[in-house]
Design a protein around this nucleic acid. Structure first.
Lengths: 253, 253
DNA sequence: CGTCGACTTGACTCGGCTCAATGCGAGTGG
DNA sequence: CCACTCGCATTGAGCCGAGTCAAGTCGACG
């Protein structure tokens, strides 16, 4: 099936072969990206010059778990699901990468194969660097390596937190947290409703929370009756962040 | 590698308060430690010179979750449990560090506080470097930084695998895997029994497998009836690695 | 000998998973 | 334009894995 995964409608609307024109704000995204924090404008230019832009359509795959790790990606626009699957086919979602986030960062160091699968959740623009280019950039700008270290450290802390959560918290709370993680902290005010700007199925949410789509559906229905959220096909809106936060936090008893 | 292992005997019998004298094989452990892989002997000497040896007794704490991250540790002998606790007091074990492993490696990069708690499982000898010394060593021997990157990468892969496991596998299998992780792969032959060389309570195993001590107790009892293991107070011996492996792997049906 | 921590076991409960039926909306092709 | 199909979602029924509660044993150690 995976044969020639040429982004199905990836390039829809554009003529095949035409590179998406790099929007003017590419450099502003690079400037804000943690991986390139504290770089001189001239160094950013270097980085940008080495990048190749690509575009993927909804559900198109950047790379699959187990494939040789060749590239480093940075999301310019859209969102990318990073997930793993078991041999039995069950899958979990590790994180969603948004504009400014990098993925495939294992290509930066020893790992030979990608540990996870990266799928576009909606149409995505991204930048790509080959492993070789990344190595060259690091030798020119060592700062990138130390930024990578701290990104990896953060990632590690995040996964550990998720692990702890999965081991100790109940489903409802995990679902609440998964939802809240999907809205940027900045856009979250206790009493304003927020729409989650991703096509998000019950199954997706289940993979994020470590449960089944059935349970997610039930929980969302219950919340909807209580006025906490509003949801539909591939869409969730948080109506009362305050109450959802209460569920997400451990303020019981 | 584990052949010529160190020796709790080498240092045994020192009077309290006296610094444990660095045994002759410290440098051999340093040489084998992933963090210092591919270093020249002269560089190893540099590293060793900057280290301070310490010893902790059973249950002594190296550092606690949330404390400012100040030191990097390397285990010479013994074992250290790295664990996290929730606000409600439930705890999970992330890993056990053995001879040659480092812990507290967050002190190498940005993180301000330790993300986990490190406790000696039995008497431990370790080397300590302050953050400042680590920074100095890295500037002298950049190779250490890239080694750290790949250690972090491995760690990340491991935690992700554990996460996947917790989300998709049943308890019995998780317990089997936890046990098997505790014996070094080298010392595992399919048909020879292996004793786990750590004081390991049911509670400890439960924290490793993400379950409760009651469930662990029941599972171990069942296995004992079937002749898979032999267990007692703080002690587990794997009688039939082959069968345990079968439970651990997904070869059902 | 008494205490305490580790462990075991039975009885009970229940959260959440499985199975299964059904509804619904959006593309798609005739 | 309508009928068909397919993927997403909802909801009920039932069950079971594993957690909780509660007693009690065993062995170590002061």
């Amino acid at each position: 099936m995976a044969t020639r995964v040429p982004n199905d409608r990836a390039l829809r609307g554009e003529r095949d072969g035409e590179e998406p024109s790099p929007p003017a704000l590419v450099s502003s995204i690079l400037l804000a990206a943690p991986l390139f924090a504290s770089l001189e404008p001239s160094q950013i230019a270097l980085v940008e010059a080495a990048a190749r832009p690509i575009r993927k359509g909804r559900s198109a795959v950047f790379f699959r778990q187990g494939e040789p790790a060749e590239n480093l990606y940075l999301v310019l626009d859209g969102a990318v699901k990073i997930g793993q699957v078991t041999v039995e086919g069950q899958s979990v979602a590790l994180r969603y990468a948004r504009a400014g986030d990098v993925f495939g960062c294992v290509a930066l160091f020893g790992a030979q194969t990608y540990p996870a699968t990266a799928t576009a959740v909606k149409r995505c623009d991204a930048l790509v660097w080959s492993r070789r280019e990344v190595e060259r950039l690091i030798s020119l700008v060592p700062r990138i390596a130390s930024n990578a270290l701290s990104i990896l450290g953060d990632e590690l802390a995040t996964v550990r937190a998720r692990y702890l959560e999965l081991a100790t918290e109940r489903v409802e709370r995990r679902i609440a947290r998964a939802l809240l993680r999907l809205v940027s902290p900045s856009s979250l005010r206790a009493s304003e409703s927020v729409r989650i700007e991703l096509p998000l199925s019950r199954q997706d949410l289940a993979e994020l929370a470590g449960t089944t789509l059935h349970t997610v559906s039930r929980v969302l229905s219950a919340w909807e009756h209580r006025g906490l959220v509003e949801s539909g096909r591939l869409r969730v809106t948080i109506r009362s962040p305050r109450d959802l936060l209460r569920i997400a936090e451990a303020v019981e008893a």
